[in-house]
């Protein structure tokens, strides 16, 4: 153990020293060049390490993954669109896709609504209580999804009828005489998927709340005063004065949460591993990769996900360009 802690510290030191040395060398290298070339080349040398990392870990793999998605399970033979055709005709995968779409539709919307409500309501509290409420709601964000699954086990746990219920939800549910329900195994109306969503909401509503609260506080007080002087009720002030002014932040939060939800994995993996009709794309990908060793199918799933992400990517780039032009 001591050895390991030593190794950790040494690695951090070597890593940082190495990075400094690398840039020192790159800088020296640039200075060796004739001054005209030095100025031209130096920027490229300084961004080189970053782009090497990005190329190796994102660009190159993306290309390989697209290619692999048209090959068989061991990436040896070309199979055309077989992987995609197999996926889309598979009932289980259709259900997986449906679940992922449910996540993407429901979670961002509820995250924003609850986050907005908490942000707006806490704003009316004295500042100490405001801070307390916000911290309590924000803290789950620091917890891993595996940790969250451990925590929520004591809410969703199920014991057969007649035994003492150790899960809070069943304890409340059966207190009125009802039969206990195995919540996470019950896929009627996708109940279990909805309950898994609750865990994610628990974990990330704080994120939306913090950003939206900051936005609400930055709404100029004059605009609110003006509306109140004109006789607007608080409800109207919120919906027709504040809301339009924080639209940008709402969209930003929505986009971020949507991207996160499209890749949702840990919650499903640790709670049900996709059983009982709860599977989602990322979990299916991991199963194809680490259990079935079907690289073709795994790659095809990633490509489907990447295609789904493209509209968001275009939106982001356009948004960025607009902001740069405005700045």
């Amino acid at each position: 153990m001591l050895l390991k802690s030593g190794t950790v510290l040494v690695t951090v030191a070597i890593g940082i020293a190495g990075a400094i040395a690398l840039f020192w060398a790159l800088n020296k290298l640039a200075e060796l060049l004739p001054s005209k070339w030095e100025h031209r080349l130096k920027p490229y040398l300084l961004i080189l390490p970053a782009y090497l990392a990005i190329s190796l870990y994102l660009l190159y793999p993306t290309i390989v993954t697209v290619i692999n998605s048209f090959k068989d399970r061991t990436s040896d033979q070309w199979v055309g669109f077989t992987n995609y055709a197999d996926l889309f005709t598979d009932k289980a995968f259709q259900s997986t896709l449906f679940n992922t779409v449910l996540w993407v539709i429901i979670v961002p919307a509820v995250t924003i609504i609850v986050g907005l409500a908490v942000a707006a309501l806490t704003d009316r509290l004295p500042s100490k209580s405001e801070k307390f409420v916000k911290t309590m709601i924000f803290v789950p964000m620091a917890i891993s999804m595996v940790g969250a699954a451990t925590v929520w086990r004591f809410v969703y746990a199920y014991q057969p009828a007649g035994e003492t219920q150790t899960g809070l939800l069943n304890a409340v549910w059966t207190s009125g005489g009802a039969e206990p329900v195995p919540w996470l195994n019950t896929s009627t109306f996708r109940l279990n998927t909805l309950l898994l969503m609750v865990i994610l909401l628990w974990a990330q509503v704080g994120y939306a709340m913090v950003l939206l609260s900051a936005a609400i506080k930055s709404v100029p007080a004059e605009t609110l005063e003006a509306a109140r002087v004109d006789g607007a009720e608080e409800r109207q002030v919120f919906f027709s004065v504040i809301l339009p002014q924080i639209k940008g932040t709402i969209i930003a939060v929505g986009v971020t949460v949507t991207i996160g939800v499209m890749k949702i994995f840990d919650i499903v993996y640790t709670n049900t591993n996709g059983q009982f009709n709860t599977n989602v794309l990322a979990n299916d990908f991991i199963n194809e990769l680490t259990t079935n060793f079907n690289y073709g199918a795994a790659s095809a799933i990633v490509v489907i996900l990447m295609i789904a992400v493209i509209p968001i990517m275009i939106y982001q780039v356009r948004n960025f360009k607009e902001q740069e032009a405005a700045a």
Binding site: P61, T65, N68, K263, L289, Y295, V302, M306, Q316
Partner: peptide
Amino acid sequence: SLLVVPNFVAFIP
């Protein structure tokens, strides 16, 4: 644009 690319594209390669 790379900000939104899911990092698991990289796993198999």
